[in-house]
Design a protein around this nucleic acid. Structure first.
Lengths: 146, 146
DNA sequence: CTGTGTGCAAACACTTTGCAGGTGT
DNA sequence: ACACCTGCAAAGTGTTTGCACACAG
């Protein structure tokens, strides 16, 4: 993976460049799906402390590098934000469609799926919308049919 | 609250009628919003064991009496299913719109809000859709304005 | 009577906090 | 040099499991 891009990204988000952060960011870049804390931990080649992983994820979240992905199991997952999703300025970016596959268990961002407008009852003020679709993903469907 | 209805409901879901179950079911009936395990526990007049509350919620979930409500904090919440949502036969009932108010913190089911059709990419098979809208609810909005 | 529910104790898993020392800028 | 990261230890919190007894049907 492009370590230059990783370093550049950290810098762009005003984050110090440490080995732990580079590795965690690399994991997110390599994997296209959302990761829970436990997923990140198990995928780290070098063992950093659990606590450091917790703190790194929280830092990334605060800085707007990653965002939360809802899950039906109670474990919070995280996924990389797309470009231009900074700390002060990611309100326009709060609508996400996520797909969780019951077969492979992975949750992916469906960036190209348009989230339909939801008509709320009178008096409700919408700030953020999260849509989680569960089912069987493309790959698993193909395997079953093959 | 109508204890007769509660007993009837337990029976309808093939659940033994115990004090604990009646009380938990009563709490769900009284409260219009989704409840996490901790919420249920704190609202029980008589103190039953934490473990019993966990098991009761799991049982209710398995039988289709309640359903999961997504949350952005990682804590699973539960809410009563509407009528005709039985164990074998609640696939048609899997689409929910929930609203979480950032002011009062309550998550409510918006039963009358139509969940828009989501167009998935080719190959994806949808089974269930969960939509969580966050913002400010009717009541809190009214208070702020008042 | 039988199968299930409950309480208790304990194990287990998850997450946060405080502090001392190390590291990036 | 300074601020911030990290690791360790420990505490705090949330959840599950096993077993003995109680209770609903």
């Amino acid at each position: 993976m492009d370590t230059k891009a990783i370093k550049h990204t950290l810098k762009a988000y005003s984050l110090r460049q440490t080995e732990c952060r580079e590795e965690i960011l690399a994991i997110f870049l390599n994997k296209a799906h959302a990761l829970a804390h436990a997923d990140v931990e198990t995928q780290m080649s070098e063992k950093f402390d659990r606590v450091t992983v917790y703190r790194t994820l929280k830092t990334f979240l605060d800085k707007g590098l990653i965002h939360k992905v809802l899950d039906d199991e109670g474990s919070i997952k995280y996924a990389l934000c797309k470009d231009n999703c900074h700390q002060d300025d990611h309100h326009h970016h709060h609508d996400h469609v996520h797909f969780k596959c019951s077969s492979c268990g992975l949750t992916t961002c469906l960036d190209h799926v348009v989230i339909p407008a939801v008509v709320l009852p009178e008096g409700y003020k919408r700030v953020e919308t999260n849509l989680l679709v569960q089912g069987v993903c493309k790959d698993c469907n193909a395997k079953q049919l093959g």
